[in-house]
Design a binder for these strands. Structure first.
Lengths: 117, 117
DNA sequence: TCTTGACCTAAAGTTACTCAAGGCCGGTAT
DNA sequence: ATACCGGCCTTGAGTAACTTTAGGTCAAGA
């Protein structure tokens, strides 16, 4: 499929996909005879994963390492697993941050209410 | 107190505090006779709030609006309240994103396990 | 007295996009 | 046939939010 559809399906913007490809984050993207990118379902799966990893704060450098491993095939699955497990610990930390921030907001809003009534 | 202590207490870096002040995000910071910044407990409270708002993804522009209102005093509490309520909706969205990402990671890890055993 | 450490400013550098300029190409309306 | 449109292409500049660097002041300790 073409880039606009890959964007719609993955969540990433067209520009971001091109940028990610230039940064070697998206292996195996082939071109049609017109020079346009053609995305396979596997490509789109990968882009979708990148979208969620970025959305939840994985740094570019880690994504690059992850993509390099992915490009090397199944022999790197153990390494990729450990990257995803690390990221899942980061998700837990972020959830804690959200809880902490919620508390702080609740306290502030309480103080505002005192002023308001 | 001095800037390094304000940084330690708020969570922000020294450099970020200076940058935020330059961006008018931190009202009422006074200087000592040596030209150094002096932070009151109220300043530090404010910085801590900024730290958590940033940490949970509030854009700079919103922080600027929020800080401008804060600088104008109690008459703006209703507006500030609505900014914090908006942000708290954003927190909910982010929690959903984390859950969605967790699911995706779990599926990937499951696939990896199949390869690994 | 000399140096160390914490502070200061202004300006350049970095990250991760994002947008703009300019161009190619296939399809459709005139 | 030709004019125009939308979607793709590349390169390069622009942006946001810091972060680092360069260069300087000043008080206190060895």
């Amino acid at each position: 499929m073409r880039i606009s559809e890959a964007a719609a399906r993955s969540g990433l913007k067209v520009d971001t996909i091109r940028y990610y490809e230039a940064q070697r984050l998206v292996p195996n993207v082939v071109r049609g005879s017109d020079g346009h990118r053609r995305f396979s379902p596997e490509n789109v799966d990968w882009l979708t994963l990148l979208y969620w990893l970025r959305e939840t704060g994985m740094p570019m450098k880690v994504m690059q390492r992850f993509a390099a491993l992915y490009a090397q095939g199944d022999a790197t699955i153990l390494d990729r697993k450990s990257i995803l497990l690390d990221h899942s610990r980061l998700l837990a930390k972020r959830r804690d941050d959200l809880d902490r921030c919620d508390e702080i907001l609740a306290r502030k809003l309480e103080i505002y209410e005192e002023y308001l009534q």
